[in-house]
Design a protein around this nucleic acid. Structure first.
Length: 448
RNA sequence: GGUCCGGUGGCAGAGUGGUGAUGCAGCGGACUGCAAAUCCGCGUAUGUGGGUUCGAUUCCCGCCCGGACCUCCA
């Protein structure tokens, strides 16, 4: 059983995944707009896609994973103006932090990481095509996409143009033909970053860069497009409209994979609410692998309500797996992922189901089953787990002060001075380490 | 207001038209100088009212509650 099933937002149904070209599966994930630190919601999105890509790589010989960086944006411009620096100086830090933080979660880098600033040519070419095809028009220095020109507009997100207008909570610019028309290109005043175009010096609107970059790197029609479900409208609806109208007859992405939002205290983390958890801060509280594990403990299409208690629990579950692996230090590496783990993953990335299977393997491994331990380790590769050794997981680099106390305690126990022994255990605990005694004076240390 | 999604044991969280995974926490026992870890065992759940069915947690309808989108957002 190696058939991957994926829920496709386009059809609102779980479908058997069939690549356009089995020799090269092409996938695109909407990446960050780089003006700030990544938050935990970004992390969920990237971890989910990371598992999908790892799984696809087991099933197909080649996967091209593209994740863009949006480095043209009005929020970036605002920051640059506030600080009196160039937009490159604003985006440099956030791009570096993004790589560091996602790396700390053991997510694989994309094969191609295109930037909007390097794709103005493609962006302009697409806009020219849209104008030539009668799907876009110039007005007041802007170029706008005409939603009325696209009979399919709204189908993806399940809305009619009337609904969109009725629900509009923003003022409609007077130069728009329809309230739903959106900007492809807008003029830049001299104090703002801009690029020369047939419509004068300006900059692209929000949605066009993803259409241009996916076209450049994956073609007019590719397999999978991912993102958070808050992007379904308007971002992905608009991407589809632009791409399908610029390339008549193309289908753009075949399968759309959207993860649900991460909640904090029952509410969506969002920039406007200001309640978002900065990933870097969460990584101060727990190992990256525990944060990653927390994000896979619920299905990607369910809401996940973050809590510190959940983080602690994620870490304890991983403790158990590392204990199971620890029992087989010389285990030969295997890439045979047990069917019990693979099967739920193939069924629309059911990570909680896979984790349940991991626990069964851990039980067997703790009972002495070497094959189960090898299977557990192999399963970790497809899930992006077990990236460190058990010793590193439990203790990391032990400070000299702790080692000295441990040695003093061994001596005390040998002398059966249990009062001293218990006192030393408390002192070790005060330094953040727990000690476990084993047979014949053996012991294990772990970070509290 | 429109559209959509969900409500499972103390908590987290899957699956399923036919005796409700898994984990964490809790309880009892073994082991231990005491612990920890490990092992054995235990308990508790499908929001609510109808309908379809031999049988529903699973399908359908109403209600209640929660969340998302309709605006920047992963």
């Amino acid at each position: 059983m190696t058939q991957l099933m994926l829920y496709n937002t386009r059809t609102r149904a779980k479908e058997a995944f069939t690549p356009i070209d089995p020799a090269n599966v092409r996938a695109y994930l909407c990446g960050p707009t780089v003006y700030d630190r990544a938050h935990l919601g970004n992390a969920r999105n990237v971890v989910v896609f990371d598992i999908l890509v790892r799984l696809l790589r087991r099933l197909y010989p080649r996967v091209t994973y593209v994740r863009n960086i949006t480095d043209i944006d009005d929020k970036i411009n605002t920051r640059a103006k506030e600080r009196g620096v160039s937009i490159e100086e604003v985006t440099e830090g956030p791009i570096r932090w993004y790589h560091e933080d996602m790396g700390a979660l053991y997510t694989l880098p994309p094969d191609i990481e295109p930037r909007a600033t390097a794709h103005l040519g493609e962006i302009i070419e697409m806009i020219e095509r849209l104008i030539a095809n009668g799907h876009a028009y110039e007005a007041a220095g802007h170029v706008l996409f005409s939603v009325a020109s696209d009979p399919d507009y709204g189908k993806f997100s399940g809305r009619t143009p009337d609904e969109l207008i009725a629900g509009a909570r923003v003022d409609v610019a007077p130069y728009k033909r329809d309230a739903g028309d959106f900007v492809l290109w807008k003029p830049s005043t001299p104090d703002l970053p801009g690029w020369d175009s047939p419509w004068g010096r300006g900059r692209p609107g929000w949605h066009i860069e993803c259409s241009a970059m996916s076209w450049r790197h994956l073609g007019e029609n590719f397999d999978i497009h991912g993102g958070g479900d808050d992007l379904i409208f308007p971002h992905h609806e608009n991407e589809i409209a632009q791409s399908c109208c610029a390339f008549p007859g193309s289908k753009f992405a075949n399968v759309w994979v959207h993860n649900r939002m991460l909640l904090v205290n029952g509410e969506k983390m969002s920039k406007s609410l200001g309640n978002f958890l900065v990933l870097h801060d969460v990584l101060e509280k727990a190992p990256g692998e525990a944060v990653r594990f927390l994000l896979m403990r619920s299905h990607y299409r369910s809401t996940l309500d973050f809590s510190d208690a959940g983080l602690v629990e994620a870490r304890r579950e991983l403790d158990r797996f590392y204990r199971a692996l620890e029992a087989f230090p010389d285990m030969a590496a295997s890439d045979q992922v047990p069917a019990s783990v693979l099967w739920p993953l193939l069924d629309d990335l059911n990570t909680p189901g896979a984790i349940a299977a991991l626990h069964a393997l851990a039980d067997a491994a703790l009972a002495g089953d070497a094959k189960a331990a090898a299977g557990l380790h192999a399963a970790g590769q497809v899930l992006g787990l077990f990236n460190v050794t058990s010793a590193e997981w439990f203790a990391g680099d032990v400070p000299a002060a702790v080692t000295a106390l441990v040695e003093a305690r061994i001596a005390a126990r040998a002398a059966k001075d249990f009062a001293a022994s218990d006192r030393l255990r408390d002192e070790i605990a005060a330094l953040g380490y727990a000690i476990q005694d084993g047979p014949r004076g053996a012991y294990k240390l772990r970070k509290a």
